[in-house]
Design a binder for these strands. Structure first.
Lengths: 345, 345
DNA sequence: ACTACCCGGACAGATTCTGTCCGCATTTCG
DNA sequence: CGAAATGCGGACAGAATCTGTCCGGGTAGT
């Protein structure tokens, strides 16, 4: 640590020390800053006068701690950046980002204190006026776990962890981590599984006790991480895997079918859709809902289900409906979105 | 402004003044802080030594400005809050939140500087390891416009604006704004339309030149803003509005059909689904894809389309498929989601 | 050329800071 | 209960820094 001559700079150093450890006594601080304990006490008083919440305990186990809240020094963000902070944290608080609702709200409150007064007023108005939609939260992920995995990805270093798959089975995994993806309100890790010698995608909320093994590794492949996650979601270990010939071209099919639903490719001049589900009925319904005709190649159970569904659609909508006219609506928006469940996993 | 005795506290006051106005000369600052210009110059030097980027111009139009960047004082966020900031801004940067990509990246870079060194390293690793998924950005909304509307909501004050509807028609609108919603990557305003004497929902990216009229109003109703947006999305001014009887109970129907797709209610012991689209074919496909049987009450065109679809499903999947076995996959994740287009608007 | 700005050294006096000393209060442990 | 280890803050003398004043130098705009 370098020593500075001016008291105001030393104040900031004291503040930094208080942050790096939860607990200091005056003797420790004095030694670190090369001042006396009396001066430490004076500096603590100065920090308090400046609005920093320094908490002290007398007695045998006494010492200083930095409390939360209090006045904070100015923050150098542009107006756009401040709005982005408010909007981004608001989105996190409403569950748009996996599992950081409360922390985001708290962080937002603190950051607001640090804005210039005029802009603060406006950002506060934005938060007050914005209604939280019930998007729902993703599964909680321990921040410590997330950061540990992130560090493993970055070094890069092999990790070991306990994993719980969809059916509840626990297995030990050893992997070379590659990248993190936050998709569909969940966090995923794309990694190379050392025991299976292949790429795998794991959900972080199903991961326990990650341990950095200490073994560094060299990356020899650069997979498209986002694509693997998206593809993986489509071809999860469902009970039924269907192969369907679509009566359309590849571009149209790709535009219509999200990669998280199914994989589309062209083989011998035909457009083939592969997708999975745990229930035949679900597959039949999904295929029936596609905006182009489809022939199921396999499995035959799905073909049968589609024929049965076709018959039921005809039977239910013969003639003679009851007439009711829906009320007119003037709405000036557009768009919609939905999660598509495909049977229990 | 209150005056303080200690030079270190005055430094923070000087820093605050430099933020409130883009330009000050020494004489103005001296008068504000009740010190001489020479002392202002000394304080500026001290701020620079502390890492604040104070920019000065000599000459007739000279003065001081606070530049961007530079060292920043410690920020009092918990680890959880810091991760939430990083994650939330990362989501905004990847288009998860409407229109604040670049500003979010810049804000994130600045905030990272303010973390304690150990935590900063870990948050940086998180950002490096996280792959941006191609969620796509929503339409850009001018931050100034967003903040103006937010302020109108909060006061509350009537506003006037030019609105472009789905077909491109421009109209003048006078409204009493109630609340803002960020849904489906777009910003919406829920307001009471004064000319139509009814509640309306507007997209902010289709709004121009909002003007605060100066007329305050009192809120006499508290509508469910999020529900109005969601409901509005389902019952947009489509060419075809269908009414469908579902062979299931209300709870099941509500669980299966998002409010952004259609409205479900129970009438005389029957579960009724109302939804709209610009194309009959789309409605037929969607209804066919539902996981329960459905009878279309109206319009007859949709009933006809469903019968036709049922026949085609049977024809396309008679017998004798070509046999191909899909490759097995071990993927440990689940879930999917997609925007559901329903014909051109 | 003139005016209005920023820059920073030098000096004497004013102000603040520091270490030392001390008594008081609180908490924990044996 | 007493001892030990902590925080608290006043008082004092000397050390250190800050301040206003003065001044010469440099830059930018009219």
């Amino acid at each position: 640590m370098t020593f500075v001559s001016s008291p105001s700079a030393r104040l900031l150093q004291l503040l930094s020390l208080l942050q790096t450890r939860p607990h200091w006594n005056a003797a420790e601080l004095a030694e670190r800053l090369r001042i006396t304990e009396r001066t430490v006490r004076r500096d603590v008083t100065r920090l308090r006068q400046l609005g920093y919440p320094v908490v002290a305990d007398a007695g045998r186990a006494g010492g200083y701690q930095l409390g939360r809240g209090g006045a904070l020094p100015p923050l150098l963000l542009t107006d756009d950046e401040s709005v982005a902070v408010a909007v981004g944290l608001r989105a996190a608080a409403s569950g748009g980002v996996a599992g950081y609702d409360e922390a985001a709200v708290a962080a937002l409150a603190k950051l607001e204190q640090m804005l210039p007064a005029a802009l603060r007023e406006r950002v506060l108005a934005l938060n007050a006026a914005t209604v939280i939609t019930r998007a729902g939260s993703g599964p909680l992920v321990d921040p410590e776990l997330l950061l540990t995995i992130a560090q493993a990805c970055r070094r890069p270093e092999r990790i070991r962890f306990t994993y719980q798959d969809g059916s509840g089975t626990l297995t030990e995994r050893r992997v070379e981590p590659h990248g993190l993806v936050n998709a569909e309100r969940r966090w995923y890790l794309v990694a190379r599984d050392l025991d299976r010698q292949d790429w795998r995608t794991f959900r972080l909320d199903r991961m326990r006790d990650p341990v950095l093994t200490g073994h560094r590794f060299v990356r020899t492949e650069e997979p498209d991480v986002a694509a693997m996650v998206a593809r993986g979601l489509a071809l999860a270990p469902y009970r039924w895997q269907a192969e369907v010939v679509l009566a359309t071209d590849l571009r149209e099919a790709e535009a219509e079918i999200p990669r998280t639903i199914g994989a589309v490719e062209e083989v011998d001049g035909e457009v083939i859709l592969r997708l999975g589900a745990n229930e035949v009925e679900w597959l039949a319904r999904y295929i029936a809902g596609l905006p182009f005709d489809a022939e199921v190649r396999s499995p035959p159970e799905v073909r049968t289900a589609l024929r049965r569904l076709g018959r039921r659609l005809q039977d239910a909508n013969r003639t003679r409906p009851r007439r009711v006219e829906p009320a007119p609506t003037d709405f000036c928006g557009v768009g919609g979105s939905a999660f598509v469940p495909r049977g229990s996993i």
